[in-house]
Nucleic acid binder design. Structure first.
Lengths: 266, 266
DNA sequence: CGGTCAATTGAGCAAGATCAAACGTAGTGG
DNA sequence: CCACTACGTTTGATCTTGCTCAATTGACCG
């Protein structure tokens, strides 16, 4: 994805969007349609005030930015939306939510003045969560290319670092989902499936796993006691889904394991 | 903290360290003491192979890197260690652990060939978790300054982005700790304390909180049902620690609330 | 071949989920 | 301004899940 110009000409990609600005977002208030420098954004303790996106001495030009209003209950961006800019909360209150198949939702965070929103999409180029205003809010939107974009892109080593850090954020979000929403059985199944998938991606067998960690370590990773981990693995064995031999686990029925995760995760 | 030269001359800061290399880490094997370019690191599906730290066309010079061996059970780095370099797992298996006061430990992840280790320390300049080898392992260490370092530092806007992403990683790790190790009572107490602290840092009252979110949203954030959240708040009220009025919560006894979190978090 | 540590399995118990009902608050429209 | 409605909150009763305690078995190492 390339840099999106301050005046956006790309058509909305999401069916929920029906106008020039995202649903629930009005045109710039203090700023004109052409992006302002937004030097009034001086927020205490802010993670990333827009002012800090200004260039330092010897740097290139500042990233263009502008202000938007978001009404209560409306989305600043939604899961799947193409990445267009980073947001700093100027006033109000947001929640970020990952929608889950089961209807329940995972609230990944609450965000108030000074907090950064939207960094989740820097690498994948599309947002992985909804950002919903819990009250009338204002944000500062800073237009910045994704790490692969040609303009304003950082030097190569840092692009890789961005990717690595972004990958870690994604991994942690997945783990939060496991810890916050899944039952013991589902957690262990998800753990085994994740391990299988990662091993497969590296050229190892995805079905013959050699566990390098103890049941206690698995438990500490999944928020369970070691006895519970052991019991769940035994349950999978009794169901004919895995075969076990001490630290070695053979997955006989990958789909059966997926079925154990249930409707929460797809 | 500044860039640490490939040949390290700084004294170990951690009492657990007793030699030139971190405990359990032997001198470079394939590479000589002076860092090699390590072009043999071509790992499939890797998040950040050392090769990718090479400069692209028109970039500055590559970051120096070298290889280390880590024996089973030994630490690649430990919580509190000064940040010196980023690691890519070449072979073997690691766990990353956040030590917790209560003796239990939070395993934040398992890491195999191709995974990046150590990015947690890029901003704070010191590691926030232990990285322990679960079997005989090899890593590629890439020397890179922290985002505030003078050498190899990225342009300013990206430094801010690094900080923001790093902050998000820290926040998520804190939440994983809450989701994985705390009981309902402790989770709600930690949530209220966190909200209080963040509001205080922004100039609002840290004791008179106006909750913008519903009990259900708090529950979805903490991995609890909304009834449980309500019950815990009622318990705090009955204990004389908070006063409640619908969406408004007044904290009467901050220390009392901290006492509820118990020994797990300090 | 003990010794140590990890894993398994069982029994009882407590924390939290679930189901259900009553109550408060905010918002709407007459 | 008030009544009505919708939704959020509180509280209670019951039940399930997973934790705790305990004993046994199994693997690995000198």
């Amino acid at each position: 994805m390339d840099m999106i110009a301050p005046v956006r000409t790309d058509a909305p990609r999401d069916p929920r969007r029906d106008g020039f600005f995202p649903a629930g977002i009005t045109a710039p208030t203090a700023a004109s349609a052409s992006p302002s420098r937004c030097s009034i954004c001086k927020l205490r303790e802010a993670d990333l005030p827009c002012d800090l996106l200004r260039p330092g001495p010897g740097q290139r030009e500042a990233l263009p930015s502008t202000h938007w209003r978001v009404r209560q209950g409306e989305a600043l961006f939604r899961c799947g939306d193409a990445f267009s800019c980073l947001y700093t909360v100027r006033s109000g209150f947001f929640k970020t939510v990952m929608p889950v198949a089961s209807g329940r939702e995972l609230v990944t965070g609450f965000h108030m003045a000074g907090d950064l929103l939207g960094a989740d999409a820097l690498v994948a180029q599309s947002h992985v969560c909804d950002a919903i205003a819990l009250e009338e809010s204002q944000v500062c939107a800073s237009f910045i290319s994704g790490v692969d974009g040609p303009d304003h892109a950082p030097p190569l080593p840092y692009r890789q670092l961005f990717k690595a850090m972004s990958a870690q954020i994604s991994r942690q979000q997945g783990l939060m989902l496991v810890l916050g929403m899944l039952r013991a059985e589902e957690r262990v199944a998800a753990f085994l499936l994740g391990l299988s998938q990662r091993l497969g991606a590296r050229g190892y067998s995805p079905t013959h796993l050699k566990l390098r960690m103890t049941r206690r370590e698995i438990g500490c990773h999944l928020g369970l006691e070691l006895e519970t981990v052991s019991r769940m693995i035994s349950k999978f064995r009794e169901a004919g889904i895995v075969e076990t031999g001490y630290r070695r686990i053979q997955i006989l029925d990958l789909d059966g394991l997926r079925r154990f995760i249930g409707p929460t995760m797809a």
